[in-house]
Simulated scan of single mutants.
Amino acid sequence: MEVELLTPPAPAPPAWAPPTTAAVHLGAPPLTPEQPARLTWRGLLAMAGFYMGFAVLYAGTIAYTAQDVQPDAFANYLRRVLLFDYPLKALWTLPVWWVFFRTPLERASWPLKLLAHAVVWPLWVGAWFVSYYGLLNWMGEATMSGNGRVWDVYIPALFYGVQFGVLHVHRFIQQLRHHNLLNQQLQAQAHASQMAALKAQINPHFLFNTLNSISASVPPELEGTRELIVRLAHTFRFALDASRHERLPLGDELQFLQSYLELEQARFGNRLRVSFEVDESLLSIPVPPMLVQPLVENAVRHGLAPAVQGGEVHVAARHLSSNQLKVIVADTGVGLPAGCTADTLLGSARGVGLRTTHQRLLALGSHGLHIEGNQPQGLVVSFVLPI
């Protein structure tokens, strides 16, 4: 539904405070995204060493128990283990590894992972057992019979638990190192933001008193100019107040956006058209402040300003799920330059505001900005924020 957002009354000028740790300054190093689990040569060699050690231990144990009746049992069992047994185990491990480390199951809770392992475990053992015995029979190799086959169920089941225990521990160590690196980068960004804030610090009372003086000096016939000055003062007040809070209601953020766009409309006139599409139930949801404004500013400055006919800026917010909020800023401007992609836009001078917002979203646990072309022209920038 269309929601009309009224300009709020001017709040009292807040005292200046440095940005929170979620703030990102362009002088700070960019956040390092978490790398997905992947197969590397180093990892494959480590797993090959693990398989080799387990194979030698298994063959040695069997040879020790059968040394009285089979003096050459170690060489025979080691050959079978290395040529048939463990290659098949590795083959059946690959799809299971992919399921647990390259799908959304990786980020599931541990009870859910254990439940999944409880289902996959017997399937993996059964697949190995059938393929192993089928291969040995095809090759004319002897196999265990009777109660002895229980060892070819127990040992693979034990091996499954050990190998995936090792893989999960290794992945946990990788994620722990990434989180430590991310914390260090966030601390560096917070420090850079605080230094930038101290360098750019101004006295809010001086600023608002000056704006009030200018407003009072405007003659009555220029009432429109006086209203613009008052609106500008309201905008500054919100920006300063936002620096004191980690989150503010979405409705306050949208009211600030409307004030900002009305200032821009005074400059662009009929060339700039604005629309909001926000469900009333979302207005009270707390969100990080000043997160949408850079997207709107980018749409106006780089999307609509170069277009002779101007265009429309459309801001929408909707529930994506029970715990996710999706915000969309779409414009009908000039769109991306020829040959420019979303990645290059985030790294260009035009994308400074977008890049800063993208880094803030990453720090907040979001996947960052999603940029795509609008139809018939323009740009759509959106993000999904955990509530």
Rank of each mutant, 00 (worst) to 15 (best):
T235D: 05
T143G: 02
P111H: 02
L136Y: 04
G148L: 12
N203M: 06
F159T: 03
F159R: 03
P220F: 00
G224V: 10
N203H: 07
E221Y: 10
V96G: 09
V166H: 04
L105K: 14
L114S: 03
H117F: 12
N183I: 06
W138P: 01
V130G: 09
Q201D: 05
L222G: 03
A142F: 01
Q187G: 10
F159I: 11
L135G: 06
Y133V: 05
H168P: 02
R102Y: 07
G146D: 02
P220M: 03
H191I: 09
H179P: 00
V99I: 12
E221Q: 09
F164W: 09
L207Y: 07
L167P: 00
L158H: 01
Q175H: 15
K199E: 10
T210N: 12
Q163V: 15
P204M: 00
H205F: 13
E106S: 08
V120K: 10
S109D: 15
W128F: 13
L123Y: 13
A233D: 05
H178T: 00
F172V: 06
H178M: 02
V169E: 05
G165W: 07
L228C: 11
Q194W: 10
E221K: 11
H168E: 12
F208A: 04
V130N: 14
V120I: 15
G224M: 10
H168F: 12
N180I: 10
N137M: 09
T235Y: 07
I155Y: 07
E106V: 15
A108D: 08
H191C: 11
I202L: 10
V169R: 07
P95I: 13
N203W: 09
V169K: 01
T143M: 03
H170K: 10
